[in-house]
């Protein structure tokens, strides 16, 4: 699916670099609803992502302004509305504003002018890739911008990275026995990306991704056994 990305008012973030994609920068005065908030901005086919920085014109306490923005999205023509997403961000992040509609999102984390963490870049790129895919987009698309709150995976990851500091085997065994495998598979993927050294040859990231992509949990598990020792069934 063709996706066009705009960065508007003021276009002062490194979106093109961060997203690794073409981003068209547009200057838009104030909260002028005659611009990207009108259907005629989107007369081409395909999908549109608009990255909007309202600066101090839209802060957490500006509930009415947010409601007006959301109304403009709702007022887009049929056939346009479902192809358009407005991601509103700021230098401090939106703590309180929560959108009431699927096409507008107020990004919680701060976005600085010059810098975005690798982790955040990865999430933004995953989000954009999802918009480029042919699948229908649901309201949960925005969740791709944030890390998954997967406590089991994070716990396994923390255990694995503690292996040089303490005996993690009993805890690993207990965790593998108690937690669901997809959570653990995600942890393996994260772990693989972080492996720096191992007493044995560490599995490569490509290996983990390929194995997990096939849903071949037992292969991943066998590799884990090789790295860490015996793991119970």
């Amino acid at each position: 699916m063709q996706l066009r990305i705009f960065s508007v008012y003021p276009a002062d973030r490194l979106w093109s670099f961060w997203l690794d994609r073409q981003v068209d920068e547009r200057q838009v005065a104030n909260l002028d609803p005659e611009t990207f908030q009108q259907s005629d901005w989107y007369d081409e086919s395909g999908r549109f992502l608009v990255l909007v920085h309202f600066s101090n014109l839209l802060k957490d306490e500006h509930k009415e302004r947010a409601a007006a923005i959301e109304k403009h999205w709702r007022d887009l023509d049929d056939g346009v509305r479902e192809r358009v997403w407005w991601l509103v961000y700021s230098g401090t992040g939106y703590w309180d504003l929560v959108s009431t509609i699927p096409g507008v999102h107020y990004f919680r984390n701060p976005v600085s002018r010059e810098w975005l963490s690798d982790d955040e870049k990865r999430h933004f790129r995953q989000f954009v890739s999802a918009l480029e895919a042919d699948e229908q987009i649901g309201a949960t698309i925005w969740a791709k911008l944030y890390p998954t709150e997967n406590v089991a995976a994070a716990t396994l990851l923390a255990l694995l990275t503690s292996s040089e500091l303490t005996d993690i085997q009993p805890a690993i065994n207990k965790l593998l026995a108690e937690r669901r495998m997809e959570s653990l598979a995600r942890a393996h993927r994260q772990f693989a990306a972080r492996v720096k050294q191992s007493p044995k040859t560490p599995p490569t990231l490509d290996f983990w991704v390929a194995a997990l992509g096939e849903g071949n949990y037992s292969t991943v598990r066998d590799q884990l056994v090789e790295v860490l020792g015996a793991v119970p069934d």
């Binding site: 406590v151 994070a154 716990t155 923390a158 255990l159 503690s162 500091l165 303490t166 005996d167 993690i168 805890a171 207990k174 965790l175």
Partner: peptide
């Protein structure tokens, strides 16, 4: 924060 309950207190403290 994640490891309490899985490792003993001394190990958690060291980590």
């Amino acid at each position: 924060l994640l490891l309490r309950g899985w490792l003993d207190d001394k190990a958690v403290e060291r980590i």
